[in-house]
Design a protein around this nucleic acid. Structure first.
Lengths: 207, 207
DNA sequence: AGGTACGTAACGAACGTTGGGTATGTACTC
DNA sequence: GAGTACATACCCAACGTTCGTTACGTACCT
């Protein structure tokens, strides 16, 4: 009656998700087929259907893994910031979104590509909206801290500052993906710092 | 030898493009099929192949139409700005990108959705990169004017200011598409104005 | 009469999905 | 502790559908 657990079910699901990931990174959602995923992991479509009842379920799981990976991935900037609070943390959060290396570029490519299917599917659109809302709230927390520290002016509502900052990085991601030569890592960082400097103008700490 | 021109060839191509447009606005690029387009315009796939040799040709033409439509569409803000120069023109250019009404929301949805296929297809990616580069250059022209007028500080390179501004609106477009309730037109405009006010800080005109 | 415009129908390929078939391991029996 | 029963994991093959594409037929205008 107890599940014999001959193979690690969850581990296999992750393995499948990673294959989905690799297919998406190269061919986008238009090239995401069960056969392509199966071939990518050296298996057959029968294996896929054994772990996911349908392609849609597979897609949803892949997006969740992508989300979790984005949340759990190494955040070099945030870690270097340590337990710093306020503006330093805001900066770290923004930098960790950007496609500064090949891996995060691949992640961002998939994110951007997912907007096609997400915008055409109400449920996926809702989930995406929720993700970005949470990201803004997280950012708003750091911004509120920065305000308390006097690093940011109090004039603008925290929500607006967070929405603006997220807009800025999202757009920068898109441009960097299409023109990586024009937006190398250093320039992306410089643009963020320039942006934060502008936002920080009017703060009371450094004056 | 002269073509009898029983029907207006170019007009039909535009008609087809508009059908493509309508299909894309609802189902995204994942739902773009010849049969869907044919059904949308009350015709058959035979008509489509008569005007476009392949689906890819149809897709490329649709993207061109989208580009041209974005360039030629009514620009309420820019027109109201008239022949104003400098910062007013920068503001108008930014506002005319945003999904402030249903129609421009549909356009933006298609633009965002096109990033999936574009990122997976080198040629389309190159064309997209070129489009955004041109948009930045156009913006840079207005920014340079604003600098001459003393409306913007001279410290930051014009290219960077343009890239930053474009990043900001692109990201705002994405967030507004996914969360239209949280980003109504007024808030989008307010965020842009807030952004421009920050960028303008340090200018010499108002001091 | 002749060529253009377009519908009709069919092609092969690829899609998501389903249903066996075959190992391979665990659980129970004695 | 060997033998049986059984569930799991997976491959393999095929299903019906839908895709892009092609060939062919027909109506219409000059």
């Amino acid at each position: 009656m107890t599940p014999p657990a001959r193979t690690d079910h969850d581990a296999r699901r992750i393995e499948v998700s990673q294959a989905v990931w690799r297919v998406l990174a190269v061919h986008g959602f238009g090239g995401l087929t069960l056969r392509a995923v199966a071939a990518e992991m050296g298996a057959t479509t029968g294996l896929l259907t054994h772990y996911f009842p349908s392609k849609r379920a597979l897609l949803k799981h892949a997006l969740e893994v992508l989300d979790r990976r984005s949340a759990d991935r190494p955040r070099p900037a945030a870690e270097r910031a340590g337990e710093a609070s306020g503006l330093v943390m805001v900066r770290a959060t923004l930098l960790d979104i950007l496609p500064l290396d090949a891996e995060s570029a691949a992640s961002n490519r998939i994110w951007v590509a997912s907007w096609d299917v997400a915008l055409a599917d109400p449920e996926l659109a809702r989930e995406h909206a929720e993700r970005y809302r949470r990201a803004r709230e997280r950012m708003a927390g750091h911004i509120a801290q920065a305000k308390e520290l006097g690093e940011l002016p109090l004039g603008t509502p925290t929500d607006d500052t967070a929405a603006a900052a997220q807009s800025f990085v999202l757009g920068l991601v898109v441009q960097a993906l299409f023109a990586p030569r024009e937006f190398p890592a250093e320039r992306q960082i410089a643009l963020v710092d320039e942006y934060l400097a502008r936002v920080g103008d009017g703060g009371t700490a450094g004056e």
